[in-house]
Design a protein around this nucleic acid. Structure first.
Length: 953
RNA sequence: GCCCCCGUAGCCCAAUCGGCAGAGGCAGGCCCCUUAAAAGGGUCCGAGUGUCGGUUCGAUCCCGACCGGGGGCACCA
């Protein structure tokens, strides 16, 4: 009978009704509008002027078209609870949300559905926006935008021009405007940087076009012809960060080939040291910092030059101390010197293992290079693989002992790292040891082995004093590694044979994509085919509307294909007549577009005032929301929450852009994100039948610990939520069944934000029950009357329960352990239910703080109860309850009494009892007295407020 | 192969200075409500912390080794 449900129970239907009404009201009243200190969004700032600021931000969503599941909102809810709590606790909180909308997946979705990406993307954004609103998040809607808005990407292009218009001054350790470089070159106070002047004449002797070429080679954004990651399946080139270790595209898993192409690059390597060192000043998880450190991959060592006939082979090594142990050399198969060095014929008696069975070195080299180039990345890095290589037929001279070292090419040496050449020290390097064993090369130990070391077991890579390392001028023998490195490096420098150096794994960022759906470059080419910046007054360079936006893709494995940007097909767009100061001239537009990381590199700045069309960001707003808090502070967003998958891509690129903007004086902060938290993943059980096919998880029933689908037993697995595992659960389903507040409480109750967790639909009802009990504390389910009364005074016990709860809830909210906060709220609610039953009046002085404490988690229900309690409007700006310390301390405490570390009894003592009083009370206890009777007490440990421990002898 | 994180009740998880292993949820038992059932309310039950060893008066917590799970890096000289 329907009458069985009390008319004023907090049912899902009532929850829905309350939630929709409050969402309308919040929007209508602008409850979550955050005032800026200045400018167009500053209305109402006087009310918050004395508050500290907090900038809380999510990694903004990418509207790909695949539906949302219950895992997606976890981080958004975490920031929402934090934002609401901080606002109530007295901060001026900025909690905005935007949309990352350019890029491959959006474009692929559009191609699939046959609609223009702008149509599908905007529809997807509208869908996500509606879902977020239905969750009740407190975003300031006025600050929302998408990266595809021309008003937004105008500034993405503007930043590109800043980077294009800057160079990295190694002496100053920072970026400077390119005009300053030109001025210094003209004044003769600076020479062009290494490798930037291919003309062989000094700066002053160059013509204008040559000078421009030299200047362009200095820029932080520059065109470069080099082997790049070409992905025929996607029809575009990719950055190193977008290629997986097995040589495939992160997106779509297509094969990637190395192919020389002229592309836009970003000189992120100039910032390698600062990107690495500033990690120490960030409040980020160790694992993300470690991944960035690994990716930057700084290693210090030395460059050493080995004479080889008239040529010189330069190697990089981190172990110059082992130089006396070098017995051969290896070049990467693609090393530029290979052709020059290769001997015309094998010397007499050449080891057959070294020649690859070829008649001449040239033939052996050609064959080996051919094999190496065909080998896939996956084969090449299979660590179990046998070492291969061939001899070039020549030797090089070890500068330290004159030893003649045969020179090989082998694919275990990589072109892209160091100098692409190594000195091989098989005694102390595992890879060299394996190669030496196979090719019968000498192994000379230069580090003293520990007792009993087996030389046949492999190279010795541990610590030890140097041995076998001296010549007439220098001896390293007896030195430890650090001293030996210093000594030998010094000697090499004096001899002109080497110097200390640092190398990085990090490469410059390939920034062009041959795709339609991205920001056009604000670049045109003149009659000399050199790049020219589009003046900032002409920004944005609008992405032209086209009918054919499909990328030109190729067979996945068509390595010889060449990219063709869709924009190059737009005839009337690719050429343009502009007046750039010297009269109207024809220019050719850049037809590549930017990668989708560009838009996410600076979006946090745009939230400060998305309507600003005059400047990137108002410096006063940047200082207020992002500026350093003091000496040595990097500044940045106070809490940034997002997925672990962006550990190196987005987070590294954004840091790089921010540092350039900092150097050029556009932002006061040194880092974009002061604190980063990676929310955990939500996984769910999935089930397979006896054929191994997934069955719908929602229809699986459990019986006696086993699982059945349609009566047949199935296997339980655990994995990502999604269509393929048939275990998809959506927020919409949950909100439909329970309401948004229950969904919010459930997601937050399952653990600290960082923790990954399983989804259990059947457990959601627990959160529903909690909210029903809280509702019942305030509202009589039968009459609908408010139970809270001013006439009831809470008992001491209730006051203790309340203040303990306040204390714990604050702790939970403040440390992103929302589960703790919920547990404390549950305890208080259960206490009130027990103390006051279902109908008797509840003290208002307890009911109100309870409602306020719930507000960050279940804001709709809290605001409904808050108004029913007689308040006007939302609780969102009402101060959060503060615990009174006097109710946190007990008058008497229960103290455990241990004998030999085992708990044997408990005694009640005054809370402030000292050690002596504790011991006396413990000795007075019957059970303890029995233990101590006749025994020798060797020691007594008494910790006031905690325990007493008798140690018997 | 190297590095990082995690193993606590039938299940998910707490225990933030080394001090009585339990906050919370699910499942289960009992009671109330109900004609009955479901929903709801109340209440109870439950592990000695993956294994072995060490430090300590005392270890979930610190150290070492191993087992199991997850993640990252991987011929980077």
């Amino acid at each position: 009978m329907p009458g069985d449900v009390p008319p004023h129970r907090y049912t899902p239907a009532l929850a829905q009704q309350i939630e929709l009404a409050w969402q309308d009201r919040w929007a209508a009243e602008g409850t979550f509008h955050t005032p800026n200190p200045t400018g167009r969004l500053s209305a109402g700032f006087e009310k918050v002027a004395d508050r500290p600021k907090t900038f809380v931000m999510d990694m903004f969503p990418y509207p790909s078209g695949a539906g949302l599941h219950v895992g997606h909102p976890l981080g958004y809810l975490g920031t929402d609870v934090t934002s609401r709590f901080r606002r109530m606790d007295g901060d001026n909180v900025l909690h905005p949300m935007g949309y990352d909308a350019f890029g491959l997946p959006a474009e692929q979705y559009a191609v699939q559905t046959g609609q223009h990406p702008r149509i599908t993307t905007e529809a997807n954004i509208a869908a996500i926006r509606a879902q977020l609103r239905r969750l009740g998040v407190d975003h300031d809607e006025r600050r929302s935008f998408a990266t595809i808005d021309p008003g937004y990407y105008k500034w993405t292009q503007w930043i590109f021009l800043q980077i294009f218009g800057a160079w990295f001054d190694e002496d100053a350790g920072k970026a400077r405007p390119i005009e300053e470089l030109v001025a210094e070159l003209d004044a003769g106070t600076r020479e062009p940087g290494e490798g930037t002047n291919p003309f062989g004449r000094p700066w002053a002797g160059l013509d204008d076009v040559e000078k421009r070429t030299v200047v362009d080679a200095h820029r932080l954004a520059y065109l470069h012809e080099a082997p790049v990651n070409w992905c025929p399946g996607l029809g575009t080139v990719l950055s190193n960060e977008e290629v997986t270790p097995d040589g495939r595209s992160e997106r779509g898993n297509f094969p990637v080939f190395r192919r020389p192409l002229k592309q836009w690059m970003m000189r992120i390597t100039a910032y390698a040291d600062r990107l690495l060192e500033d990690l120490d000043r960030l409040d980020w998880s160790d694992s993300v910092k470690l991944m960035q450190r690994n990716w930057i991959g700084r290693s210090t060592g030395a460059k050493i030059r080995f004479a080889c006939g008239p040529e010189s082979i330069e190697v990089f090594t981190t172990r110059p101390d082992t130089l006396f142990g070098a017995t051969y050399m290896v070049l990467a198969p693609e090393h530029p010197l290979v052709g020059t060095l290769t001997a015309p014929a094998w010397p007499d008696g050449a080891d057959p293992r070294w020649t690859g069975g070829a008649a001449t070195p040239a033939e052996a080299v050609r064959e080996y290079q051919r094999q190496a180039s065909r080998r896939s990345e996956l084969d090449r890095q299979d660590t179990g693989r046998e070492k291969t290589g061939v001899w070039l037929g020549v030797t090089a001279t070890n500068p330290v002992n004159g030893r003649e070292l045969p020179v090989f090419i082998a694919d275990y040496v990589l072109t892209g790292y160091g100098t692409g050449a190594i000195m091989a020290v098989p005694g102390e390097d595992t890879r060299d040891w394996e190669f030496a064993k196979k090719f019968g090369l000498d192994i000379v130990p230069t580090v003293e082995r520990p007792e009993g070391f087996d030389e046949d077991s492999g190279a010795y890579t541990g610590p030890g004093r140097m041995i076998n390392s001296s010549n007439d001028e220098i001896s390293l023998d007896g030195l430890d590694k650090a001293a030996a490195i210093a000594r030998v490096t010094e000697w090499l420098v004096a001899k002109g044979s080497g110097e200390a150096t640092t190398t990085y794994k990090l490469r410059d960022w390939l920034f062009s994509r041959q795709r339609y759906w991205g920001e056009p470059f604000p670049i045109v080419y003149d009659e000399d085919d050199l790049p020219v910046a589009v003046p900032t007054s002409m920004l944005p360079v609008l992405l032209p509307e086209v009918d054919d936006y499909s990328p030109k893709t190729f067979a996945d494995d068509d390595a010889d294909s060449a990219p063709e940007p869709p924009l190059s097909r737009v005839g009337d767009w690719t050429t343009v007549e502009l007046d750039l100061g010297d009269g109207p001239k024809k220019y050719r537009r850049e037809t590549n577009t930017m990668p989708n990381w560009a838009g996410s590199c600076w979006y946090y700045l745009r939230y400060l005032d998305p309507g600003d069309d005059e400047q990137l960001v108002d410096p006063e707003l940047e200082r207020y929301w992002l500026g350093p808090r003091g000496e040595g502070d990097v500044g940045g967003v106070d809490l940034y929450v997002g997925g672990m998958e962006h550990a190196v891509l987005h987070l590294l690129y954004a840091r790089f852009w921010h540092k350039v903007l900092h150097d050029l004086g556009h932002v006061s902060s040194e880092e974009p994100f002061r604190r980063l938290v990676n929310q955990g993943y939500i996984s769910a059980y999935a089930y397979t039948d006896e054929r191994g096919f997934y069955v719908p998880a929602a229809d699986v029933v459990e019986k006696d610990g086993r699982f059945f689908y349609e009566g047949k037993p199935v296997n339980r697995e655990y994995g990502k939520i999604g269509k393929s595992l048939k275990n998809m659960v959506t927020p919409d389903e949950m909100i439909g069944a329970y309401g948004a507040d229950t969904f919010r409480v459930y997601e937050m109750s399952t653990g600290p934000l960082e923790q990954s967790r399983p989804w259990e639909t059947k457990a959601v009802v627990g959160s529903q029950r909690l909210l029903q009990r809280i509702w019942r504390v305030v509202v009589d389910e039968v009459s609908g009357a408010v139970r809270a009364s001013d006439d009831v005074e809470p008992s001491e016990e209730t006051l203790r329960a309340l203040h303990r709860a306040i204390d714990g809830v604050r702790d939970g909210y403040g440390t992103l352990r929302f589960n703790i906060a919920i547990a404390r709220i549950t305890e208080l609610t259960n206490h009130l239910t027990q103390a006051y039953g279902a109908t008797s009046p509840v003290p208002r002085s307890v009911a109100e703080p309870l409602v306020l404490m719930v507000a960050p988690l279940a804001p709709h229900m809290a605001d409904e109860l808050w108004t029913r309690l007689g308040h006007d409007g939302s609780s969102a700006w009402h101060p959060f309850p503060v615990a009174d310390p006097k109710w946190l301390v007990e008058d008497t405490v229960q103290v455990a009494v241990q004998v030999n570390g085992k708990v044997r009894s408990q005694v009640s003592v005054p809370a402030d009892a000292d050690a002596a009083a504790l011991e006396a009370a413990a000795r007075a206890d019957e059970k303890i007295a029995a233990y101590l009777d006749g025994a020798t007490v060797r020691r007594v440990v008494a910790v006031p407020g905690r325990l007493v421990n008798f140690v018997l002898g």
